[in-house]
């Protein structure tokens, strides 16, 4: 808290904290709660796909979406608190949030090119699966 205030000397005024703006307090409070509830619901649904997802790629996609939802949550929390303490977290997540799914996708592509075909144990549908085409 003190660190963030020292970092942002210009934003300590009343404008930086809409929650403390007197008469509008309840409206902003309700808005923040609604946004948080929506984000939690979205996170739960994305987590459901992360758990259910039949293939690894489904889980990678869901993980990306979960990172996006968490980033939105951090952004909303930062705005509600008027406290820039977590903004670097947002920066790092936007920087590195994609590495997981890229790694998974690359791993699956390597497995595919190595000729093992489907990594997952479900049915194989594509006739191009495991094809030797090296087209980028």
């Amino acid at each position: 808290m003190g660190v963030s205030m020292a970092l942002r000397p210009t934003a300590v005024g009343a404008g930086a904290r809409p929650l403390a703006a007197g008469t509008e307090l309840s409206a902003y409070d309700v808005t923040a709660v609604v946004i948080a509830a929506l984000l939690v619901g979205a996170g739960l649904m994305v987590t459901l796909r992360l758990v259910l997802g039949p293939t690894t790629l489904d889980r990678a996609v869901a993980l990306d979406a979960l990172v996006a939802v968490v980033m939105a949550g951090v952004g909303v929390q930062t705005a509600v608190q008027g406290n820039a303490f977590y903004l670097p977290v947002l920066l790092v997540l936007s920087f590195l949030g994609f590495t997981g799914s890229v790694g998974v996708a690359r791993f699956m592509a390597l497995r595919d090119e190595a000729g093992t075909g489907d990594v997952d144990e479900s049915q194989d549908t594509g006739e191009e699966s495991g094809g030797p085409g090296e087209v980028r």
Binding site: G75, L87, V104, T125
Partner: peptide
């Protein structure tokens, strides 16, 4: 900082989407 976050997100998420879509197509999903 928020501008940087938006820029990085717009730069990196297409890369991930491209890789995942490519792997999905190649493995017949």
């Amino acid at each position: 900082i928020l501008l940087l976050v938006g820029l990085f997100q717009l730069t990196t998420s297409p890369v991930a989407a491209h890789m995942v879509g490519r792997a999905a197509y190649r493995t017949g999903r």
